[in-house]
Design a protein around this nucleic acid. Structure first.
Lengths: 207, 207
DNA sequence: ACCTGAACACCGTTCAAGT
DNA sequence: ACCTGAACACCGTTCAAGT
């Protein structure tokens, strides 16, 4: 079936199937051949719509980032940063397979730049020096990316005998795994609020 | 040359060559076949010493983590956290290819647990409730991993025309790239100090 | 025990060929 | 323009064979 009357594929269909494949099988289970199979098409067909695998993944990241909320700066820089960071984390947490792609990408995409632009504008508009605004954006992004790339609590074993004796301070660590999602969120929230509080207390902080 | 009198390989030689290969070619350029070639050996030979590629990478991570300094808790929890976070970042920044491996790994390795144990012990010993200590460890780790996985400033383009008009707040963004390393460090330092300051100001903070 | 070449089931991507 | 099968240069890993 070559050149069917109505095209079998378009970028949107490919992007949606790619996101689904990432969600279900994770980044390591994602391949152009698997993606093509999910779309009931041969692998080279994808190259009529995307030049490379990375371009497909770039588009997926872009779509996920679209949900990030930068409107909070209307209510001051603190609220702006809190809303941005939380919605950024939420968006990536909804698609864990996408997080590593955000971390490693060079992110020249429109939506990334638009997001960075609004955040920087919000901070400078509130009175932060441009230089400080850049650093604050960076620090918050680090926290979000870290929180989303490396689930902290789930990194521990759920077998208590792993810790017994050898790591006395982690003797309760096996309980971490059971509540991993909550602990990861609490750790993120603690870090985010402490960071914003610390910034508010700094000498050059705007009111 | 089968079964030579003196073995050609051992885990240490493999691990060192693997780290070098990662440093030079990055994670995407790392393969068991390339590693074997660097050691002037056939690829299957590696499987006499490591069961899988992941096991090799695990060992490399473990060796890099060995440099992390958790001794600062002798001088109080603030100094402990600052020293830990900075040396953790330094260790990973010295081997950028290793950072994504730390982020994605489940990290059951001895040295990870030993590090987590000392940090948790240091925080609890200083007077933080165990629960809070876990969250603080997590938040700091998020910041470090984020800082090391996703170079912030270098994610921007060095072509000014990319920003002109469309992203007014980023009009100076092309200057970021030139000083990317310094800006990334400043953003990390700002975030780290603000986080520790914010923690120190919290209601349940020990003296 | 430790190394080898051959082989299996995968990759991303290119290309000539079809409509 | 859009899709196909065949092919190229790669993967990680297994396995029988050698010493």
């Amino acid at each position: 079936m070559a050149r069917p009357p109505t095209p079998l594929l378009n970028r949107e269909r490919i992007r949606k199937a790619a996101l689904e494949l990432l969600d279900v099988h994770g980044p390591s289970g994602f391949s152009m051949r698997q993606l093509a199979a999910a779309l009931r098409v041969s692998a080279p067909s994808l190259y009529s719509h995307y030049a490379t695998k990375d371009e497909v993944l770039d588009d997926v990241v872009d779509a996920v980032i679209a949900d990030v909320d930068t409107s909070g700066f209307r209510h001051g820089w603190r609220q702006g940063v809190l809303t941005w960071a939380r919605s950024y984390r939420d968006a990536l947490l909804a698609h864990p397979g996408v997080a590593p792609l955000v971390a490693s990408g060079t992110q020249h995409r429109e939506r990334f730049l638009a997001m960075a632009d609004r955040v920087h504008g919000g901070l400078v508009g509130a009175g932060w020096p441009s230089r400080r605004a850049t650093e604050i954006s960076g620090a918050v992004k680090f926290l979000v990316i870290g929180a989303v790339c490396t689930p902290f609590a789930s990194g521990f074993s759920d077998d208590p005998s792993v810790y017994d004796g050898r790591f006395p301070n982690l003797s309760q660590a096996h309980r971490l795994r059971a509540q991993a999602a909550r602990i990861d969120r609490d750790a993120f929230e603690l870090g985010l609020v402490a960071l914003v509080d610390g910034l508010a207390a700094s000498p050059d902080a705007p009111p």
